[in-house]
Design a protein around this nucleic acid. Structure first.
Lengths: 198, 198
DNA sequence: CATATAATTCTACAGTGTAGAATTATATGT
DNA sequence: ACATATAATTCTACACTGTAGAATTATATG
């Protein structure tokens, strides 16, 4: 009776064999993430890739580095606003675009619950910058002061994070997509409009 | 050479020996929490209590139950507003009280980082109710519609949660107490005042 | 005095991230 | 062509986590 458990060939694989890449790891990670709704363990990820757990550490220094890379790739998909200042309907268009931006961001946070803390503890502020830029772009027609824009931005971003966290904590596993709270949005939008000088 | 590791006396202790209680466990838990800044492991908690880890499970079904009990005891300490409607200065007093309430709540969230998710996933909405009541009480002189109050409440609560999470993720271990962002507060307070009919 | 119950400890399991060494294939230098 | 370095992988092992289950001892109850 010989031992017949996995026992893959050790050492560097021959080059015909398709090897691991950061890309493949991240892809599999997102897939597992979306399936299970939470961040997979290294061992689960490795199993899905049919590879030893430690192989992953050749491509990422540690799990946190992997998660940061993951959030970086995901964050790029958030809503890209149109150039609203040229639009004839721009008076109300910004409200529509702001809602799109928030919903897009929230969807991302919902589908990848567990990455919020990673996102918030990242040193590189790339993600925050991106949201900030698109936010400012949308609000341009309102002619707000720089200070008001920043206050509103902070209020909105932290609100969205808090909201996403609350939703992800009430783990009713219905596939119901998380909508931004229209009433709260209305309250916020009103406050913005009241300060508009445009 | 006899084995000389810990080996406490097994079984039920004699009654003179001071026994464990939920209270003692919770007290020690908060102490460790404040020291280390994060939720202690059951083993750490047991070590501090000089007791076997499993002893804790006699008093709490599981770790989550312990954390819920912990948050319940902590949440009662948030700011209790005065009866502002009788105050001659009430026109501006509510702003002051609102800030106190927020700072008190934030301080609590900061000193007990890691309990936020416990708080949010609790079935009993006791904590939320408490904040909600005090919030409504403070805003009474503004004569807002019930709907506006709720919108503002949701916006504020989720903002505070998001803010607290962000702060707890940027673990610079300075003992600097977390202040509520005055500017953002000002933005929020302005929006409230604008809707006031009082 | 037997039996039940209360309060504790011990052992053990399945899971986590990951350090360190062994292993094999390829690339590079002489 | 051969030695040596480097790249990419697997294996083993450690320290940690929550906690189920059984053993143990003291007290309460019938």
């Amino acid at each position: 009776m010989t031992k017949v458990v996995k026992q893959k060939q050790r050492g560097r694989p021959k080059q015909n064999a398709n090897s691991l890449t950061k890309q493949k790891i991240l892809l599999q990670a997102t897939a597992l993430q979306q399936e299970s709704g939470k961040v997979p363990s290294i061992r689960q990820l490795a199993a899905a890739l049919q590879v030893d757990p430690m192989a992953i550490y050749y491509y990422f220094d540690n799990k946190n580095a992997l998660l940061e890379a993951l959030t970086l790739t995901l964050i790029e998909g958030i809503y890209q606003p149109q150039a609203s200042e040229l639009d004839p309907l721009s008076n109300h268009f910004w409200k529509w675009e702001l809602t799109r931006l928030c919903e897009s961001y929230l969807l991302l946070l919902q589908q990848n619950a567990g990455l919020l803390t990673t996102l918030l503890s990242m040193k590189t502020h790339g993600p925050a910058e991106l949201f900030s830029q698109r936010f400012s772009l949308i609000l341009r027609p309102l002619n707000l002061s720089q200070e008001h824009i920043e206050q509103a931005l902070h209020l909105l971003v932290d609100y969205l994070h808090g909201f996403a966290l609350a939703v992800s904590c009430n783990k009713t596993e219905d596939p119901l997509t998380m909508r931004v709270d229209d009433k709260v949005m209305a309250f916020f939008v009103d406050a913005l409009a009241a300060k508009s000088t445009g």
